[in-house]
Computed example of a mutant assay.
Amino acid sequence: EPDEWQAHLIHRVLQGYDGICVAATGLGKSLIFEGVAKLAGKGKVALVVCPLKALERDQVEHARRKGIDAIMINEDTEKDAHLWEQMRTTAQMVYLSPEMALSESFRNKLWKDSKFRSRLAAVFIDEAHCIDDWGEDDFRPLYRQLDSLRGYTGMEVPFVACTATCKTSTFDLLWKTLAFGNRPVWGIDVGAERPNLFFHTRILENTHNPVLDALNILPTTITSDTHREDIPKCLFYFKSEGACREAVQTLRKVLPEHLRDSVYPFSSDMSETAKEKCWKGLGDGSIRIVCATDAAGMGCSIPDVEYSIIFDLPQGLSVVAQRWGRAGRARDSLGVCILLVPSWAF
C-alpha cells in the first residue's frame, strides 16, 4: 500500500497539478508513476522520461508485474511498428529518454497525433537531477530542453519532476527547465532518512588495485564447498570501464572456479544483452558482485543488495547519495554503504 505522501501526490497529479517530489532512494517514487497510470482512467497514458536504458527496463518489468501495460521506446526498439501502435492506443506507461521524447520520430508518429495527445495523463521526469548534472554543454543537452514538450502536450497536462537529490540550485534549474509556475504546482520533500543503512568513509589503502580494500566483506574461508549465497550481494562503483574490468579479474582470481561467474561488470560500453544479463543475474542471485560505473548509479531496485561501495571520490554528494541508495532497498533489510577515498581527503 502507498504511504500517505505517495497517495497525496498521486491525488494532486490526478487533479492536474504539476509537481516536484524529493524523496530518498528506495522510498518508492516509481509508485507515483504507476499510481497515476493506473488511476488516470481508461485509455490514459503516463510518460516517464528516464536517463538510462537499464532503468527503463527495470521499471517496465516492475510495472508489468503489477498488471500495468508498460513499455519502453529507445533506439533498440523504435523500429518495432507494433510498439508505436501500442503507445498510440493501449499502453498505460511509456518509458523513454529525453532524446527519444524530442526526436523527429516521436514528433511525427505521436506528438502530431491528436489521439495520442488526448491520452496523456502526465509527464514524469524521473531522476530529474540529471537536468542539472548532465544537461550542460555537449553531454545530453536535450535535458535542458524538456520545456519544449509543453508545446506538444499543452498546459493542461501535469509535469512532475522526481529525484532523491535536489539542492537549491538544482531546484531553481528544474523550475526553469520544466516551465513550472504557469499552472498549479504541488511540491513535497519527504527527506533522505534511511535508518536501515550504515554509512562509513575511510581511506583507500590499495590505490594500485582498489578492490583489494573490499575483500574483507567476502567469507573468511572460501573453498569448493562455499555456496554462491555465502557471498553478499554487492555493487562496487569505479570511475572507468577499465577499473571495473580490473576489479572483476581480481575478484575472479581469488574465488574458486565454481564462483567466478558470480562477479560481473556493468558499464555503458557493454551490449544491452550483457547489461540485461547482469541485472537479471543480480536479481535472481546467480550474480553476487557487480563492478560498475555510473551506468548503474541510478534506479537499480533490487531489494537485497547488502553492500554499496564507492572507490575513489565521485563528482559530488548527489552521486554518493544515488549510489549508496542502491543498498538495502527492502525496508526490512540492512545495507552497508562505504566510501573509500584518497588519504588527502582526510
Rank of each mutant, 00 (worst) to 15 (best):
T220L: 15
F33N: 06
W324C: 06
P342M: 12
I32M: 11
I68K: 00
D113F: 00
I309E: 02
Q6Y: 06
V211P: 06
L197P: 05
D137S: 14
L212A: 13
E205Y: 14
L55P: 04
K167S: 05
L282V: 07
M100P: 01
F346A: 14
H11V: 04
V94A: 05
A214W: 03
E104I: 06
L313H: 03
D230C: 13
Q249D: 15
A121W: 10
N74C: 09
T170E: 00
E272G: 06
I131F: 04
V336K: 08
I131G: 01
L317Q: 13
K176Q: 15
M270K: 04
E34Q: 13
G19I: 03
G16N: 08
V305I: 15
E4M: 11
G35D: 03
L178I: 07
L197C: 03
R288S: 05
H82K: 12
H200M: 06
A296N: 04
L174F: 02
F238V: 04
H208S: 15
S271D: 13
S169D: 11
Q6D: 06
L212P: 05
K79I: 07
S301V: 08
T25A: 15
N206G: 10
Q145H: 10
F236V: 08
V254Q: 10
V319C: 01
C162W: 02
D269P: 02
V13I: 14
R288I: 06
G325H: 04
T273F: 14
G297V: 01
Y152C: 10
A101R: 01
V123T: 06
F198A: 09
L55C: 09
A243I: 00
L120E: 07
S169F: 08
N216T: 07
G281K: 00
